[in-house]
Design a protein around this nucleic acid. Structure first.
Length: 138
DNA sequence: GCCAACGTTGGC
DNA sequence: GCCAACGTTGGC
């Protein structure tokens, strides 16, 4: 099982909307590096849901329920993909970018190193640490 | 294949 | 609103 981080600007699609819908298709990725990650996602993998631009914090955990398939919003020949994700758990204490930056265990996170990448892998140690900080794990 | 110009993302 | 970082495009 692998771990990921997916970003959304809350005024476009927020965790609140996500929770309401329960399951949604994650589309709109138009970046080759991000697409590689989308294609590598397996059913059952989990992802941190991060609010970019506004909020600037990890607000919840999502789970992959359907692996990569052609993005229904563009012609299939273009090769872009979407996955389906389900809102799994809200963070009791959202983990802010500030906190992540200040945490020695999270210094190597892709979120800090490649801040523009909208779908990125998360290491197991980082995953565990974020869940701790968020109040989802001891 | 290089690189300048341009567009986009995202933090501040 | 600004700007750095990064990706993409297009001329050569």
């Amino acid at each position: 099982m692998a771990y990921w981080l997916i970003k959304s600007e809350p005024f476009k699609y927020s965790w609140e909307q996500f929770e309401e819908e329960g399951t949604t298709f994650w589309d709109g990725v138009r970046n080759y590096a991000a697409r590689l990650h989308l294609r590598a996602m397996k059913k059952g993998d989990e992802a941190l849901f991060y609010h970019s631009n506004e909020g600037l914090e990890v607000v919840g955990v999502a789970q992959v329920v359907r692996e990569a398939y052609p993005d229904p919003t563009v012609p299939e020949e273009e090769g872009w993909v979407a996955v389906d994700v389900r809102a799994k758990k809200r963070m009791p204490m959202p983990v802010s970018l500030k906190k992540i930056k200040g945490d020695p265990m999270l210094r190597e996170m892709a979120l800090l190193k490649q801040s523009r990448l909208s779908v990125q892998p998360v290491r197991e140690e980082e995953w565990t640490r974020i869940l701790q900080l968020g109040g989802l794990k001891k």
